[in-house]
Amino acid sequence: MSRVRAAVLQMCSANDVDANLATLRAAAADAAGEGVRLLALPENFAYMGARAVDKLAIAERPGSGPIQGACAELARRHGMWLIAGTIALADPEEPHRIIAACIVYDDQGRPRARYDKAHLFDVEGADGRSYRESATIAPGPARAVLSDGPGGRGGLSVCYDLRFPELYRRQVEEGALWLAVPSAFTQATGRDHWAPLLAARAIENQCFVLAPNQCGTHADGRATWGHSRIVGPWGELLAECNNAPGLAVAELDLAAQAALRRRFPALTHRRFV
C-alpha cells in the first residue's frame, strides 16, 4: 500500500506495570479508532522504576510474561503492527543486567523482529546527573535489525542509538523506508538535540522517522523531554506531541518518498562506503 497511517505514543511511565499497561490499552484503542496500522511505543513504556536496578524485578523471559503478552494481544485485537519500545528481558548469562529489547508484533500478535539496544547511555548528563546504563543493561550485538510491516521495511533502534548515524545507514542499505527510535530522552539533552538529530536521520537517509518519547518526571526524579515526533524523508515535521502524554498520528506517503528518492538520488551518490 502506498499510504499508511502511523502513530507514536508519548507516555509518562511510572513504576507500576499494571498502570502503564492500562494506559497503553486505552491509547491503542484510540489509535485503532483513527485507522492507525503501525503504532510505536517509547522506551521503557511498561516500567520506569525509582532505581535503575528495579527493572531486574520485572524482567521477563523471551516469549513469555505479562508485558509481552499484553503487546501481542493488543496488536491482534486492533489488527495493527506494534513497535514495543523496549521490554526488559532477563539475561540468563548476566543475572545483574537485563536486555532492553525492542520487539515488533504483527497484526496477528506474532513477534516478527527483535532489536536489543546496542549503544548504552553512560555519560555525565547535561542535567548534572550521572547515567550508567551499562550497570543494569547488557548491550545488544552491533548489527542492524529490520522488520517488514504495513509501511514497508523499517529499521529498529533505541534512544541513545540516535547519535550513531552509521547504524541507520546500514539499515537503509538493507532497504529501510522508516526508522523507529523509541526513546526516553532527558529534558536536558532533548531540549538541544532531539529535533536536530531526528531531522538529520530523516534527511540523510530519506526515511520516515517514528520517534515516541517519554515525558514528564518519573519515579527516580528523572525528567524526560517529550515532543514525540513523526518526521518525513525531507525532514518535515508530520506530527508531534507536546509535553503531555498522548498520540501523534500521521500518514506515511510511501509513493511520495519513492518519488523523492528518484528525483533527489543522494543515496546513490555515496562514495565513502
Rank of each mutant, 00 (worst) to 15 (best):
A202Q: 00
A75Y: 07
I58K: 06
G155Q: 00
A72I: 09
T268G: 13
S2R: 10
P42V: 04
L252H: 01
D220N: 12
A31W: 02
G190R: 03
R110Y: 08
L238Q: 02
G149I: 08
R270S: 14
V17K: 02
L179C: 10
A195I: 09
V181C: 11
A84N: 03
A32F: 07
M1I: 14
P95A: 11
R222T: 15
I99C: 12
D18C: 13
G151H: 01
C102M: 10
D253A: 07
R5I: 13
G49F: 01
R3H: 13
V53A: 15
L198T: 06
A46S: 11
A52N: 10
E251G: 07
A255C: 10
L210M: 09
M80E: 03
E174M: 15
N44E: 11
R270A: 15
A90K: 08
G125R: 01
N205E: 09
G246E: 04
G85D: 02
G79L: 01
A144Q: 04
Y160K: 03
F45H: 02
G128N: 06
A144N: 04
L21P: 01
R229Y: 08
V104D: 05
G63T: 08
R61P: 12
C102I: 09
P233E: 02
G65M: 07
I99E: 02
L56K: 05
T224G: 07
A70K: 02
Y168R: 08
C215N: 04
H193E: 15
R153L: 11
M48S: 03
N15K: 07
R229K: 14
R262M: 14
A144W: 00
R129Y: 12
Y160W: 11
Y160I: 00
A250V: 06
I83W: 00
T189M: 13
L254I: 08
A219R: 03
L24H: 00
A118R: 14
C159S: 08
F121W: 10
E93D: 15
A59V: 04
P245H: 05
S157E: 07
A188L: 10
P150M: 08
A142L: 15
P182G: 03
A195F: 08
A135Y: 11
D30Q: 14
A118H: 15
L74Q: 00
I83R: 04
A258H: 02
A7C: 07
W225E: 03
L120W: 04
G235M: 07
F185E: 05
C241N: 10
P212Y: 03
L21T: 04
L197I: 14
